[in-house]
């Protein structure tokens, strides 16, 4: 299910806390990074590792906005439109992404390359507007700069 490296990491992580389930949130995030999304199999596997029921794991997953049970694009474009970004054109960047990628909020391109999401504050307020593609920050954006960012990923 997981790479050997990740499996080992998980084995270590559950020992970092007095209870195994404490490692749950990071484990889910790392598993998602590797597998792409939290499939039923991933959930069952992790539930076993932390000695919880699948239900309990699902309860936790559905709480955190970074965790997904459905596949996302290879590059998940997350555009902040919260107040600091709003004041500096975050909405325009988001609109531009919609046009450019041909998809809307929480949608994925048919090719599976890009998915788009309007997100809450990313902690880049002083460098607004900001976008995160997967975990990479792109800041001080304009629609033109956003184009370059998207191109850069499309080329990868």
């Amino acid at each position: 299910m997981f790479s050997e490296q990740l499996s080992k990491k998980f084995d270590k992580m559950v020992t970092n806390y007095p209870t195994k389930r404490s490692a749950l949130v990071p484990m889910l995030l790392f598993a998602q990074d590797e597998v792409g999304h939290l499939s039923d199999e991933v959930i069952a596997n992790i539930a076993k590792r932390v000695e919880l029921t699948d239900l309990e794991v699902r309860n936790v997953i559905s709480y955190y906005s970074l965790l997904h049970t459905k596949p996302m694009g290879k590059y998940h474009v997350q555009v902040c439109t919260n107040i600091s970004c709003l004041l500096r054109g975050g909405e325009e960047v988001f609109e531009h992404c919609k046009q450019k990628l041909g998809i809307g909020h929480k949608q994925t391109q048919a090719s599976g390359l890009f998915s788009l999401e309007e997100v809450e504050c990313l902690g880049a307020c002083s460098w607004a507007p900001a976008v995160q593609v997967n975990y990479d920050f792109h800041e001080n954006l304009t629609p033109e700069r956003m184009d370059k960012v998207l191109e850069q990923y499309a080329k990868k």
Binding site: T53, D54, L55, E56, R58, N59, S62, Y63
Partner: peptide, 18 residues
Amino acid sequence: VWALGIQNRGVSSVIAPN
């Protein structure tokens, strides 16, 4: 039995079966 859980958050929160 622990067959019921709480899923999602905010106004989308819902009681979910196991």
